[in-house]
Design a protein around this nucleic acid. Structure first.
Lengths: 225, 225
DNA sequence: CGGGATTTTGATTCCAATCAAGTCCGGTGG
DNA sequence: CCACCGGACTTGATTGGAATCAAAATCCCG
């Protein structure tokens, strides 16, 4: 199976990085990255596993998360088509990764990276840019979690997805309320109530639970504070 | 606002600094980094400033933070001697940086980095490692903020500093309760109450407000969940 | 010492969690 | 096609933990 990446490739920062690894990858060099399908809710890797691979998403949505002793789950990030995840500083994965939806992934062996980073000027530069943007993403998440109301968190979350969405008016959420709650540090009930309240205030429409139409973007931005 | 640095020294740094950037620097290359002193609570750079410099701490503590419209402040990170901060992916700083204590910093011009990253294998490799560690740090902060009790947050915070501290038994906090609260998403009252409760439970001693002696590390680790 | 900032402690309020029913699909089989 | 099932979601009532409001105690630093 030949990686079908062109459709999502041009997307954002990570597309740049992908160019490095994938520019010669049509099907002639399967060792550069093999394709793997993962079905919904399946684990891709677990916290503590040896991090010998990293992944690029062709299609689908992935979450990375940690599980606490008492069963609580915290989601660190969601990744969509074009994004790279599982790229670790140390030997082992610090987080687990799971498929939010059925996914198609390209798997890369990690050992190639060190070689590339040292030998290829452009590659090393873009690797650095990728890591820096990962840092910025994690920082943005921290800022979304600290001392903010449920309304501000949910509004911020929706804005992120609205911005990523091609059509800014309607956002399709691949994840459940539980996923959103575990990402924002809220319960499913609070997420649901907050969305309902936004609907009552004519900021959004909820045609279905997973479809969100932004009626008043400006008001939504104000809510995110 | 421009970096208001009560500054003076401009000697070359001699080895305290990033081994990568300066490993060949004995005294022959003063252009590599100048030294600056910043006094307590002074701003080092502001969110939105053009990010033409980054910094390495020789001594003192620095916080990076964001200010919300209503005056709330969120601290993203604390940096101590040896740490590098202000290293940005984009053109501008995403956060402000302020001196928690009087600080001595080494200032690097950012444009040198792109050159280094491309031309020097070892430098580019270590730059990448730095960025990846920054990502891991930001992720750890997110995990500390999401759906955790005040007790868990404060315990986690203390553990971080206890681990960094040479003598693990006594932690000297450079920052105020307000700083800790703004880092953990708690009020000063809650931070104070939580520390008091830990003292009542014989987990820590508080000889002074800023000195914390860990009496029962294991219990503290349990509290961090 | 003295005075202001920082920290601690106390009383009350409020937002989100928890507990508890419902409701709404989306799929499946009769 | 439709009735039913089960999971996901919404809504309601109550509780609980941290915020807020308020005041006292302590620590610096001159």
């Amino acid at each position: 199976m030949a990686p079908q990446i062109s459709a999502t490739q041009s997307r954002t920062e990570q597309g740049l990085l992908a160019n490095i690894f994938l520019r010669q990858d049509t099907s002639a060099q399967p060792h550069m990255g093999s394709v793997q399908n993962v079905s919904q809710d399946r684990e891709i890797f677990a916290e503590g596993d040896h991090a010998d691979c990293f992944f690029k998403i062709v299609s689908g949505v992935v979450r990375t998360c940690k599980f606490l002793a008492d069963g609580r789950r915290q989601i660190d990030a969601f990744y969509v088509a074009g994004d790279i995840f599982g790229f670790e500083a140390g030997e082992d994965y610090q987080l687990s990764a799971e498929a939010v939806t059925d996914c198609t992934l390209i798997v890369y062996r990690r050992n190639k990276i060190d070689a590339l980073a040292g030998s290829d000027k452009i590659a090393s530069h873009e690797l650095l840019a990728f890591a820096m943007r990962g840092m910025a993403r994690a920082q943005a998440h921290s800022l979304l979690l600290g001392r903010r109301s449920a309304m501000e968190k949910v509004a911020g979350f929706l804005l992120t997805w609205a911005q990523a969405s091609a059509n800014r008016k309607t956002v399709s959420l691949a994840m459940t309320r539980q996923d959103i709650g575990d990402y924002l540090g809220l319960t499913i009930e609070t997420v649901s109530r907050t969305l309902s309240q936004m609907e009552r205030e004519n900021v959004i429409d909820l045609p279905t639970a997973r479809q969100i139409r932004v009626r008043n973007l400006e008001m939504l931005e104000d809510m995110a504070a």
